[in-house]
C-alpha cells in the first residue's frame, strides 16, 4: 500500500463573523495516498476550499491536526512552513494568481528564487518547465498578454518549480471554457502520472471525475462519502446515457 501523504484528524475550522460563528469544517478525517489524484467535490460553501487551505498550510485549523508526510503542520515554525510551501507543495488557483508585473518565465522562477537557485539554474529550469506545459514560445510574455488557458499553464509550471510532492489545485478550471478546461485537467493528470506527484483538487467540474482516483464529497463541513474511480465511471456512464 502506498504511503499516506496527507492525513487530517478531526479538522475543524470556524470563522467568526461578528457575533456569529460559522463552522466551515466540522471534524474532517481523511487520508490521501502518495501519487493519488483526489478531487474534493461539493457545492459552494460546503467547506471544500477551506479544507484545501488546511491541507496546503495556507490557513490554520481551529481544532484538529493536519499531517503531511507525517509532520504535524501545527508544530512547524514560520520558517519551516515557508520551506514546506516552497519545496513540498505546488499551488494552482482558480484565478491563476500570477504576478502580473512579471513575465511567464519570471513567474515560474519566483519559487526558485525562494529556494535559493542561481540565476542560470532558474532560467534553464524555468524554460524547461514552460516548454513542458506547451508555452516554450511565450516565456517573455506577461500574464495580460496570455489567454486564460495559457495563464493556467504558467501557474502549473510554477507549481512544479521546486519539484513538489503534492499539487494542490483550487478550482483550476472554473474560469476556463470546456475545451481549455479539459486540456488543463489532462495536463495536470499527465504530470501526476509522469512525476508521481499527489494531486489534490477542490472542484465542482465534472470533467475531473474520470481522471480522479478517488472523489471525496464534502457537504456541510463533513466528508459525505468517498468514491473510487470504478464507482465513478459507472455514474458518468449513467449520466451520459440519459
Amino acid at each position: 500500500m502506498a504511503d499516506v501523504v496527507v492525513k487530517t484528524e478531526k479538522v475543524v475550522k470556524e470563522y467568526r463573523m461578528g457575533t456569529n460563528v460559522l463552522r466551515a469544517l466540522d471534524g474532517i478525517d481523511l487520508e490521501i495516498l502518495s501519487g493519488e489524484y483526489i478531487s474534493l467535490m461539493g457545492p459552494s460553501g460546503s467547506g471544500k476550499s477551506t479544507l484545501f487551505n488546511m491541507i496546503g498550510a495556507l490557513d490554520l485549523p481551529t481544532a484538529g491536526k493536519v499531517f503531511i508526510d507525517g509532520q504535524d503542520m501545527g508544530q512547524l515554525s514560520q520558517s519551516q512552513i515557508a520551506w514546506f510551501r516552497c519545496h513540498r507543495v505546488g499551488y494552482i488557483f482558480q484565478s491563476y494568481n500570477l504576478l502580473h508585473v512579471m513575465t511567464a518565465l519570471e513567474n515560474v522562477t519566483l519559487p526558485m528564487i525562494f529556494a535559493g537557485l542561481s540565476t542560470s539554474e532558474r532560467r534553464d529550469k524555468g524554460a524547461e518547465l514552460l516548454e513542458k506545459v506547451g508555452l516554450g514560445e511565450r516565456t517573455h510574455h506577461r500574464p495580460d498578454e496570455l489567454s486564460g488557458g495559457q495563464r493556467q499553464r504558467v501557474a502549473i509550471a510554477r507549481a512544479f518549480a521546486n519539484g513538489p510532492s503534492i499539487i494542490l489545485a483550487d478550482e483550476p478550471t472554473a474560469n476556463l471554457d470546456t475545451v481549455i478546461g479539459r486540456e488543463i485537467i489532462d495536463l495536470i493528470k499527465e504530470l501526476n502520472v509522469d512525476q508521481g506527484v499527489t494531486v489534490i483538487s477542490a472542484t465542482h467540474d465534472l470533467k475531473m471525475l474520470d481522471v480522479s482516483d478517488r472523489i471525496v464529497d464534502i457537504r456541510d463541513g463533513l466528508v459525505e462519502r468517498i468514491r473510487n474511480r470504478d464507482e465513478i465511471e459507472i455514474q458518468v456512464g449513467e449520466v451520459g446515457g440519459h
Binding site: 514560520q78 515557508a82 510551501r85 516552497c86 499551488y91 494568481n97 504576478l99 519559487p111 525562494f114 518549480a161
Partner: peptide, 8 residues
C-alpha cells in the same frame, strides 16, 4: 501568493 510560493 508570494507566501504560497515560499516567501518568508
Amino acid at each position: 501568493t508570494m507566501k504560497c510560493l515560499g516567501a518568508l
